[in-house]
Every structure is written in structure tokens, then in C-alpha cells.
Design a protein around this nucleic acid. Structure first.
Length: 814
DNA sequence: TCCTGAAAGCTTTTT
DNA sequence: GCTTTCAGGA
């Protein structure tokens, strides 16, 4: 047996060493799938004699791609080429990348086939949104009626399903509108010489589907294809992979690794059913289950198993481990998000002080980015180090987007989205009216904005010379713009043209040089550094971008070429592509120590000894949208998200939920997540730290209560918290509680809430008998209006006193 | 055209 | 509660 297979368990070894034919690996969390993938690549090369350039390995994140490259290299050594120091392609010939980066490479090579200029640029979600909005305006659709975001995601969905504007068959009126916007949107992208993320996939897949010559070219090139996270593929990705794998000789060497239970990207078109589709399309496939977990304790896995069993459509797996039982998963109820954060910090300090673990071993995970705020504030207050992953993305910062828009515009002057962004930043007297006039005029002549500007500056003949089609007569007439407007526009184009010329002649050593020049010459830096701290901070961010740009030097070679099919790339080319396809969540990890804060989505693929899952409440996890939609698929996806969080933990896992939470500036009463109910209570422990209760704020709020409930389960704790809440002067009461209806009706948000007819009267009154789904029949002892809902305190015989929200508890009056 | 204060809208999740 | 957009006046 080869060295590559030792230390693998039997199913892992089988997966690695199956050379020919399709393979489907259903890999549970922590089952060593990355090892399987990397060793398989090594095995194909070393044992099966496959040439590295015939292998394509696809991942979903840059981080996974990088890790894969590093690990393959660690096994094989760098034998396939001489890299430039620091950044050049290693393992030359072997293609490893994300779907998007690989598609971008193919399209850059096949640019003519799709009718683009070679210097096309990539639009990110922000650019997409800006473009949709611009088009809504252009088509005179009211943004209030047709939400740009809704239309953007509709367009995105269509593209992910490979539906072109021509093929789109609208079913409803909204579809019709979206379809028209879609058509115009695609047209504008082409004019702008730009593609969005979804285009990268759609255009590549359609190209490979429709062009026999190109399909055969890439089929021949990649005879072995590996796909990680197969459950996250969308229609376009699935088809692309299928087209490539089904080569004329019928090799079908497609190696798919995935876990239906970890599919959490439905919202961007991922369909876990592709895993089942694979089984249908490749009936001869070898299916391998990896059920042994090397990451977590049995206690954690039991919780994970118990939860995920509630999903209906899945391949059953029973995770097991030899890591030992470990400690029981702990559940804690906090009063609100502030105490939630405080308790988590207390616990973290306790762990760090009482063991060899450091802050870097700990992660806090939540459903939405907004939840990080309260945590951060507490961390800052306590002077605990933390790192926030992915919240305000670096490349989405205003100053970064501005700078990149400048660079992008210089690279591709047809880019109207970049032009929109910076034409008047810093202000140069080109206001909305002037700019709108320019756009209209350009549209009438049928030129792009840059050409229109050039006509202003040099006259129509100058532009006509460089065009295939002649300019209409209108171009030779005086532009419909005021003298002042024309002066301002000419001033701008003088600069822009200078930068473009510089770029064309490659009169810069690195992209950083080019950037410096543009930033200074445009006056952007001066405006940015306005003497405020914020200005300095933004400038520092700009310097960080400059640092990246400095690595892109004249004459450098492609960072991750598609071997044998390379084309010439300038440093600027490569810089812009890299910037567009990389997200900073890819980078963070290795930086300094500190507790990691991140969403459950970004947590996928990672592992930590200690994991806190906070905000374990209905309406957060599962998210309110998924509850409201009533779609079982939505709910199951939320459950998978929860499952992903649980299975990140190696040693200890905490579920934390709060009784009330400030959301959108209002106080909202929260119920513990329904997912917690799905976990047998003997798998959980829910004690309250007694010391803490006596010493902290929490104790102040709760100490008046009898001590008999000290070691109670979370149900009792929620009772305790609810009582403490009414004993408190909470924010909500400031607005008037009980019978004070005046303030309520003055609050606009309250009036607009459709469900509430009158805020002053309660539906449930003292001594009413009510039926509760879980606790049975009880007697109302208090009721009041709160947060637009009704908060009812009920005594249940034999259970105790509970405070519930009428709308959530589905209370029936008897 | 730019500045200011008020109002609306926002919060899933990401390549 | 915070950010973005809008309206109105200079």
C-alpha cells in the first residue's frame, strides 16, 4: 500500500484510490474530507501517473483553494515549476480554484467568443445593485414599487439557472418587469464591457455547452475533475462540471465531495439536490460515506445528530467519534443581548484563566452580522481581544470602492458604473443635472460616456476615427449642455484621458504607481484627508489597498494560469481580477490572537475547541424570514445552518439565548429557538453560574427571587428572567406601559404595524382562563401591551408562572 | 451645486 | 439604532 493511503481509514482510502469513473463522497463534518481531496490529487499524480495539467480541482472559497494548494504541495513537494518568490503559481499545471476564478480565466482566454473587449471587468454585488438602480431610473420604473434588491436577486436566480433574457418566460407582472430590466441590464453590461459574478458562471457554461470546439478543448484538458462542497453547486455549476466530465471518450472522472446536511447557500442558487441528481446522472458512481468524525466529542455529535434528524430529505448518516464523550453541551438564557455578551465574556475569561486554552481557541457564532455589535461593545469594554470576520468587508468600504472605480475606469473607460461613482468625487462641479445631460446626449449619439467626453474635448472627428461605425449627425452639433457644465466635464476628461494614455503605454512600474498617480492627480487623497480621524483611517485603508497593488509589477506572470492556454496578462489585468474575486474573509485567519466573531455562514469549514452559538432564538435562528415564508425548505436550511455551527466545536459548545433583544430600535421578546426543543434535554446542561448571579448586574435583577430554582433547566430560567424583566424599568416601559396608550399611538412604527388594532386594550385580562400549546390550561395574572404585541403572565398549575407573548404562544382564550 | 436636517428604510446569509 | 436618501434653502 502506498504511503499516501496509510493513516487513512478504509472508506477514505477507497475514495482516494478509486482512479477511474465517477465517485460521490458523502462526508460528514470533521470526517477528513480535505485530506481525502488533497491525497487524491497526489495519488492521481504519483500513483496513477496522471499529468497535473489534466486535473481540475474546484472549491467554493479562495481560502479552500489556497489550503488545498498548500496541502497538496506539502504532500508532493513543489516539483512542477519554478515559482516567483512569494506569490507565483506553484504546482504548475494543476488547476485549483473557485468556480468563479476558473470561469473568469476561461472567459479571459475566450473573450472574443462572447463578443467582449479583452479588458472587461467584473462587477460585484454592489456594482450589480447600482446598475439595476440606474436601469430602473432609465426605464422610468419607480424604485419604491420595484425593489432594486428584489430585481437583482431575480436576475441572479435566472442567471444561475442559465436562463438568458430571451429565454425568460415571465409568469407574473413582476416577472415581466424584472425580465425587461434583465434584458436592459445584460445589454448595459455588454456596452460597459463588464460581467457580474453570475455572468462568469452562466457565460462559461453556455459557451462550453454551445461551442463544440471549446467544449472538446476543455474536456481534453481536464480529464480528472474534483469538486468540493458539491451540495453547494447551483444549476450552472452542476452543468458546467457535467459538461466537462462527460468527454467523448466517456471517462466521466468526476469526483464529488459533499454533505447535504451542510448545504446553506440556497439563497444564492445552491441546490443540495444536485447530490441526488449526481446519483441519477452517474448511476455507476461509487458512493462512499465518511461517518467517522475526528473533530468533536461524542456529546457534541449527539446534539448535532439529534438536530439534523429532523430534516426530511437527506441521506442518513450517523456520525461517531473516538474522541470520548466530553462535556455536555451547555445552554444559557440571558436577559437581553447585553447580558448575553457579558455572560459569554465571563465564561471566556473563566476558560482562559482556568486552562491552557487561549482566546484564539474560541469562536462566537451568530446568524446575522448585526448581532456582532453588542458583543463587540462588551469585548472593547472588557479589553478582551477579538477579531471580527467579514462584517464590513474591506473591498466594500467607500474609499476602497472609489479608488478601485478610478483604476477600473482607467482600465476600461466604458465602465459606466465606475464612472457614476467617481465622476464627481471629489466634487468638480459635475452635478446630477450635468451628468444626466451627458448621459442622455451620449445615448442619443450612441456612444459610451467616455467617448462622449472625448467628443466634448476633441470634437467628433477625433472619436469617429477610432470607431467602426460612423457617428450620427447629432454628434457634430453643439452638445445640449451649458457652457459651465462643458467646462467641468472637459476638466475631468483631460485628467482621465491622461491616465488612460499612461495605462496604455504601460508607463508605470507597479499598479501602486498607477494608483498613486491617479489618487493624487484626481485630488481624491486631498479630499479624503480632511484632518479628521475618520479621514486618516480611510487613508490608511487606501494605503492597505496600495500595499496589495504594489505586488502587481510590470512583467509579472499570471498568478494562477490555466496551463497551456495562457494568454498575455498585464499586472493591471491580474490585479483587478484578483481584487474582484477575493473576499477578505479569505485572509483573516492567520492574524493575531483573539476570540473570533463570525456568522454561521462564514464558519463553515472551520473548527474551534470552544464554540459559543449566541442568539439561539426563534426569529433569529431560524431567521424570521424563514419562519414567515412557511417553506419547509427554508426551515430545513436554517436547521442545517444550526448543524454547521454545532459541528464546528471540538471540545465545548454553548447555546446562548436572550429573553429579550433590541432589534431595529425596538424591544422584542424572544422565545428560545425551536431547534433547542429538538434536542433531548438530557444532552444539554443549563445551569446558571451562582457566583455570577450574586455578583453581577444579573444578580441585582434576579436576587429577590427565591433560591429554590437555582439549578433549574432553561424553562425555569426563562420564567425567572421574565419576572425580573417586569420588575425592571426597561426601555419599553419608558414609552408607556400598562394603560398609557397616548405615547404608543404617537409612535409611527406602532401605528404602521398591521396586526395591531388598538394598542391600549389587552386581549387577555386578569383571571381569564387560557390554553397554551405546551403548558396546558392556566390563569392569566397579568397582561400588558409590549413591543406591539401582548405580553401575558399566566399561572399554570403544577408548572409555574410563565410570561409569554400572545402572538408567539398561540394562546387560546377559554 | 452644496449643505443641512428630517424621514425612510433597514437586517439574512456570500462568490 | 444607524445609515442612506430626500427635500428645501442658500
Amino acid at each position: 500500500m502506498t504511503e499516501l493511503l496509510t493513516s487513512l481509514n478504509p472508506p477514505q482510502a477507497e475514495a482516494v484510490s478509486t482512479v477511474n469513473g465517477p465517485v460521490l463522497v458523502l462526508a460528514g463534518p470533521g470526517s477528513g474530507k480535505t485530506s481525502v481531496l488533497t491525497r487524491r490529487v497526489a495519488y492521481l499524480i504519483d500513483e496513477a501517473g496522471v499529468a497535473p495539467w489534466n486535473i481540475l480541482s474546484v472549491t467554493f472559497t479562495n481560502k479552500a483553494a489556497r489550503e488545498m494548494r498548500e496541502r497538496v504541495e506539502a504532500v508532493l513537494g513543489n516539483r512542477f515549476g519554478t515559482p516567483l518568490p512569494g506569490q507565483a503559481p506553484k504546482l504548475g499545471g494543476l488547476t485549483i480554484g473557485t468556480f468563479h476564478s476558473i470561469c473568469a480565466r476561461i472567459l479571459r482566454i475566450e473573450t472574443e467568443a462572447i463578443g467582449y473587449e479583452r479588458n472587461w471587468v467584473i462587477y460585484d454585488s454592489g456594482d450589480q445593485r447600482a446598475l439595476v438602480r440606474a436601469i430602473l431610473r432609465e426605464l422610468n420604473y419607480d424604485e419604491k414599487r420595484y425593489s432594486p434588491n428584489a430585481i437583482k436577486s431575480k436576475i441572479s436566480r435566472l442567471k444561475n439557472e442559465l436562463i438568458t433574457p430571451e429565454a425568460h418566460k415571465p409568469q407574473a407582472y413582476m416577472d415581466e418587469i424584472a425580465g425587461r430590466v434583465y434584458a436592459k441590464y445584460q445589454e448595459t453590461l455588454q456596452v460597459n464591457n463588464a460581467m457580474d459574478f453570475d455572468d462568469l458562471l452562466m457565460r462559461t457554461t453556455l459557451l462550453i455547452r454551445n461551442r463544440d470546439d471549446l467544449r472538446i478543448k476543455y474536456q481534453r484538458k481536464w480529464q480528472y475533475i474534483l469538486v468540493d462542497e458539491f451540495q453547494d453547486t447551483n444549476t450552472a455549476q452542476y452543468e458546467l462540471v457535467s459538461l466537462l466530465a462527460n468527454e467523448p471518450e466517456g471517462k466521466r472522472n468526476l469526483f464529488a465531495v459533499g454533505d447535504e446536511d451542510q448545504s446553506i447557500y440556497r439563497f444564492r442558487g445552491a441546490d443540495y439536490r444536485n447530490v441526488q441528481q449526481f446519483r441519477k446522472d452517474y448511476p455507476e458512481a461509487k458512493v462512499i460515506l465518511l461517518e467517522q468524525n475526528y473533530r468533536s466529542t461524542q456529546s457534541i455529535l449527539d446534539v448535532a445528530n439529534a438536530l439534523i434528524q429532523n430534516n426530511t430529505k437527506r441521506t442518513h448518516k450517523q456520525l461517531h467519534t473516538e474522541n470520548g464523550v466530553g462535556k455536555r453541551v451547555m445552554m444559557y438564557e440571558a436577559y437581553n443581548q447585553i447580558e448575553e455578551a457579558a455572560w459569554v465574556c465571563d465564561e471566556i475569561e473563566r476558560i482562559v484563566n482556568g486552562s491552557s486554552l487561549t482566546l484564539g481557541d474560541i469562536a462566537i457564532m451568530y446568524r446575522t452580522n448585526a448581532q456582532s455589535r453588542a458583543l463587540e461593545e462588551t469585548f472593547v469594554m472588557r479589553q478582551l481581544k477579538y477579531k471580527l470576520v467579514g462584517a464590513t468587508r474591506f473591498y466594500e468600504r467607500k474609499e476602497i470602492k472609489d479608488a478601485l472605480s478610478y483604476i477600473r475606469l482607467v482600465y476600461n473607460p466604458a465602465d459606466s458604473v465606475a464612472m457614476d461613482r467617481i465622476i464627481n468625487v471629489p466634487t468638480r462641479g459635475i452635478g446630477m443635472k450635468t451628468y444626466a445631460g451627458l448621459k442622455e446626449w451620449a445615448a442619443e449619439i450612441g456612444v459610451n460616456l467616455y467617448e462622449a467626453l472625448l467628443i466634448l474635448r476633441h470634437g467628433p472627428d477625433f472619436v469617429a476615427e477610432n470607431r467602426e461605425s460612423p457617428l450620427p449627425d447629432l454628434a457634430y452639433k453643439a452638445p445640449p449642455l451649458s457652457k459651465r457644465a462643458q467646462t467641468a466635464l472637459k476638466g475631468f476628461v483631460t485628467h482621465l484621458e491622461g491616465w488612460v494614455t499612461l495605462r496604455q503605454n504601460e508607463r508605470y512600474e507597479s499598479v501602486a504607481d498607477l494608483m498613486d498617480l491617479i489618487m493624487d492627480d484626481s485630488g481624491y487623497v486631498d479630499t479624503l484627508r480632511d484632518g479628521t480621524d475618520e479621514g486618516e483611517e480611510r487613508f490608511e485603508n487606501l494605503q492597505e489597498l496600495r500595499g496589495v497593488a504594489a505586488q502587481y509589477k510590470k512583467g509579472m506572470s499570471d498568478l494562477s494560469p490555466i496551463d497551456g492556454l495562457e494568454n498575455d496578462r498585464s499586472a493591471l489585468d491580474l490585479f483587478l481580477e484578483e481584487i474582484s474575486l477575493v473576499s477578505d474573509t479569505d485572509e483573516i485567519e492567520e492574524s493575531s490572537s483573539g476570540v473570533t466573531l463570525m456568522t454561521l455562514h462564514t464558519a463553515k469549514g472551520l473548527e474551534y475547541p470552544i464554540v459559543f452559538m449566541v442568539g439561539m432564538e426563534d426569529k433569529i435562528l431560524p431567521h424570521s424570514r424563514s419562519i414567515e415564508s412557511g417553506d419547509l425548505e427554508d426551515m430545513e436550511e436554517e436547521r442545517r445552518l444550526c448543524y454547521v455551527g454545532i459541528t464546528r466545536a471540538k471540545k465545548r459548545l454553548y447555546f446562548v439565548h436572550a429573553f429579550q433583544r433590541n432589534m431595529w430600535g425596538d424591544v422584542s421578546m424572544q422565545s428560545p429557538s425551536r431547534f433547542l426543543d429538538e434536542i433531548p434535554s438530557d444532552l444539554l446542561t443549563g445551569m446558571v453560574d451562582k457566583q455570577r448571579r450574586q455578583s453581577s448586574n444579573y444578580a441585582r435583577a434576579t436576587s429577590w427571587e427565591s433560591g429554590s430554582q437555582e439549578d433549574s433547566s432553561w424553562v425555569d430560567q426563562s420564567f425567572r428572567s421574565s419576572r425580573s424583566r417586569s420588575a425592571r424599568n426597561s426601555d419599553s416601559e419608558r414609552w408607556g406601559s400598562q394603560d398609557d396608550s397616548y405615547n404608543w399611538s404617537n409612535k409611527k412604527k406602532q401605528i404602521s404595524r398591521p396586526s395591531k388594532k388598538s394598542a391600549s386594550s389587552t386581549k387577555f385580562n386578569n383571571l381569564d382562563s387560557v390554553q397554551h400549546a405546551k403548558f396546558g390550561v392556566g390563569t392569566v395574572i397579568d397582561s400588558k401591551v409590549s413591543g406591539g404585541d401582548e405580553e401575558v403572565t399566566i399561572a399554570f398549575p403544577g408548572i409555574g408562572v410563565k410570561t409569554v407573548m400572545a402572538s408567539l404562544a398561540n394562546l387560546k382564550k377559554l
